[in-house]
Amino acid sequence: MTDIGNKILQTIKDKHIKPTPRFKFLFKSYAWTVLAFLMVVFGSLAVSVIIFYLKNEDWSLYIQAGFSQINFLLLAIPYFWVLLSLLFIFLAYYNFHHTKFGYRYRFSVIVVAYFALSVVLGSGAYVFGAGESIEGLFFNNNVVFYGQLMEKRQEMWNRPMQGFIAGQIIFVDFNKSELQILDPAQKTWFVDISRIHLPPFVHLDFAQRIRVVGKILAENKIQAKMIKPFFPEPLENCNMEDDNDADCILIHHQIMKENIPQLRIIN
């Protein structure tokens, strides 16, 4: 028996050292793997919202609105979701790197693999409507100030001088073919919809976020040539008389609440 060997064995005996149970190491290892997997799932959901944005973005409207190519690109990128998906990809890398043999793979290989996986899974999630649901959930509940961010985005789109108005519907009168919308600057616009043909997929609903392209007729009136929803978000389950109905959260938004007396559809 070597001298050093003796000392080691003696220390182990004197201090009653026992090997740490295997389950503790297994738990740690599985925890990193599960976290890495969860980050991929979250990242994929964020990608599904990006796809939802890009698919619903009306590229021709941007060109009509007179945005420069750079502005056009800057406006079209859903930064919030891009940053969120990048964050999840980074966290997935971090967690994967801490798994038992995660260190054997290069940063670039892991990140590219995670990116590809997120795009594939995100596309699948988009097909099942995850992108739309998650966007609505974040906006309606103002998760991490998302609602405020989106209002800023609407503000950028709001360019009355060029005949572009963005806002939320507060009044619908089909008899007069007129809408009233509240823009992000809290100005009410009267929208003449008599000369437009609404495609069947466009449903005009209370509090719906829409974009109007048209000709300015007066200080607060626009003749619509085209109406596009920012996103489809029907409030079909909303009970207007119930202040606590979560389905009406958009309508109970402070700005909208002030206009509740006006909120009605005349057929």
Partner: peptide
Amino acid sequence: VLQDAFVSMFLKLNSFDNG
């Protein structure tokens, strides 16, 4: 240092992976 390292190895022996 080696003694401490071997004691640490003994403590973590269950984490050693055959791979």
